[in-house]
């Protein structure tokens, strides 16, 4: 299967949609890494480097957006959601301005740079801000479709992309992406695995392995973390009675929390959360780190069996 990083897709999408939409792109000295340089090469008059000053970038983006423009502000997730949290909250989300935050290098898959750059808190931080939409695409096609959906959405959007090349699992021409809608990728009746980002292909692999053992696992790709698709979660809970969430994020505040909130309110069933377990990351090769922190198909299989045991208790 072909592989590519979702940040690459972000750059390609900006360059493509720059033709069709009057978008402005800002970056804080990371354009070669966030891939906004793909847009810069094509539309230099609509690209503005803010230097290494993320707070200023976010408030500047708000000012530009207040003049009726669609602005993409890009940096690593750590410095976008982390350092510039308050500018995003007060300058962008409070006035509900049309700023799209392209946050790349999210999660543990940043790898060798280590804990300071492995943002595992961004979904949690962004999720608590009113007006914010959060999308964590799983692959190239979904990333491109998510960028266009963000352009069409009137208001702030946090787009979460990765550094690592990941399998291209969707076909852009047939895949339907809609903000706020989870997508059932594999049917199943015994357990549901709700995954986001690069854990989606792992969840699909896990479902295949579970099938070999006679377990029918449903797989849902939850690209939009906010607003969360309550309907698909409730349906999965009622029909399969057991849930596993899988994300490249702290289990506190991310997809697992969002799903747990819905389950507790409307359809409590046993659930287990895969993600980093409230710890910082470390330097290492991404694949090795996935093993260390349990972000693997094997761990999803194990947790799926465990949650089924809880259901049958």
């Amino acid at each position: 299967m072909q592989k590519s990083a979702t940040r690459e897709a972000y750059g390609l999408a900006l360059a493509e949609f720059g033709e069709k939409y009057d978008i402005i792109v800002l970056d804080a000295d990371l354009s070669k890494s966030t891939k906004t340089d793909t847009f810069l090469k094509k539309f230099p008059e609509r690209f503005f480097n803010t230097g290494i000053a993320e707070g200023n970038m976010m408030s500047t983006a708000a000012g530009i957006a207040s003049c009726g423009k669609i602005v993409f502000a890009s940096s690593f997730a750590m410095f976008a959601a982390g350092r510039a949290f308050e500018q995003i909250r007060n300058s962008i989300c409070y006035p509900n301005l049309n700023v799209k935050i392209g946050a790349t290098h999210a999660g543990i898959s940043v790898g060798e740079d280590g804990a300071t750059h492995q943002c595992l808190e961004d979904i949690g931080i962004m999720r608590t801000i009113p007006n914010m939409v959060i999308i964590n695409p799983a692959d190239k096609a979904e990333s491109i479709l998510a960028v266009e959906a963000a352009i069409k959405h009137d208001g702030p959007v946090y787009l979460r992309f990765g550094r690592l090349a990941v399998p291209e699992i969707f076909d852009r021409d047939t895949y339907k992406f809609e903000i706020g809608k989870g997508v059932e990728l594999i049917e199943g009746t015994d357990v549901t695995i709700i995954a986001t980002g690069l854990l989606v292909p792992e969840a699909m692999t896990a479902a295949d392995k579970l099938k070999e053992e006679g377990i029918s696992a449903r797989v849902i790709n939850m690209a939009t973390i906010k607003p969360i698709d309550r309907e698909i979660i409730e349906k999965a809970a009622r029909e399969t009675g057991a849930i596993v969430t899988a994300e490249e994020h702290n289990v506190i505040g991310g997809l697992g929390s969002a799903v747990a909130e819905v389950l507790c309110e409307v359809a409590p069933v046993p659930m287990l959360r895969i993600g980093t377990q409230d710890v910082f990351g470390q330097s290492g090769k991404p694949a090795e780190l996935f093993e260390v922190y349990g972000l693997t198909a094997e761990n999803i299989v194990a947790k799926a069996k465990e949650v089924i045991r809880l259901k049958n208790k």
Binding site: I24, E45, R46, F48, G55, N56, M58, S59, T60, A61, A62, G63, I64, A65, S66, C67, G68, K69, V71, E86, Q87, N90, S91, Y94, P95
Partner: peptide, 25 residues
Amino acid sequence: VDMSSGSLGQGISAANGMALAGKID
């Protein structure tokens, strides 16, 4: 009111953004 403000330091950045938008357009 042209811009929400109150958290110090952010207003001047937003004013920059408006001025830049004026130049772009």
